[in-house]
Design a protein around this nucleic acid. Structure first.
Lengths: 115, 115
DNA sequence: ATATCTTATCGTAAAGATACGATAAAGAGA
DNA sequence: TCTCTTTATCGTATCTTTACGATAAGATAT
């Protein structure tokens, strides 16, 4: 976020915005979908740069997107020999679901409507 | 999104990313929270530029954020004399909730784990 | 009509995001 | 050791976002 006055806002708002920001690109959405199909929460073989082949982007660009997802904790990365494997962090994902749900839920219950 | 290859991705992914993008700033999160406290779905007096007083931002900047929220349909704006009033579009909001929920839900069910 | 209030838009500056080629780093295999 | 593979990072170009002051546009009131 450019020239953002992040400090002036509520912590919860900033946190939610960061999460949203991580999802604010179709490539990162696609990465999550791809990983979900390949890594089980019990382990299983996590994926590495095959993600690159799935996406219409250069390797360097995909690496950047992976980094961003890792920074917010939505995915984890481990090094396996020459390659590096990624998998979804299911706990963070569940937390994200809760945060979005609570946010929207609170908006909806914060009205005094009759509809 | 700069230099984005939007056309190369799934439509649903692009749509979800756009929604996330709209929520990707604490000011816009705060705006939605503020509006939710002031506008009921049954009508009630919607809010105008009092939002400006709530936020630590200049009037022009707030106007920009409002515009962005309006573009994705999360809020509606109507002109009331010299002032313009905004209120949450509850239908779009519900749709957003469903989209996020479905996305994360699909990720979770797309694993073959036992945990 | 004129002055006043409110808000959207314009112009602009600075920083972030996106994309890619090239390169570096680190392990595997010959 | 040398090479190959794989991936992260660097450097760079370009577009977007954020932010603000200034201005325009529209309604109200005097």
């Amino acid at each position: 976020m450019p020239i953002t006055k992040t400090e002036e806002f509520r912590k919860a708002d900033v946190k939610l915005a960061e999460l949203a920001q991580a999802l604010a690109h179709p490539a990162r959405i696609a990465i999550l979908r791809t990983l979900a199909g390949w890594c089980s929460p019990t382990g299983g073989q996590c994926v590495c740069g095959d993600i690159v082949e799935v996406l219409p982007l250069a390797q360097a660009t995909v690496s950047q997107h992976l980094k961003k997802l890792k920074e917010v904790g939505l995915i984890d990365g481990t090094i396996d020999g020459p390659r590096s494997c990624y998998c979804i962090n299911w706990e963070t994902l569940a937390k994200a679901e809760t945060m979005f749900g609570n946010f929207i839920g609170n908006l909806q219950s914060n009205n005094n409507g009759t509809t």
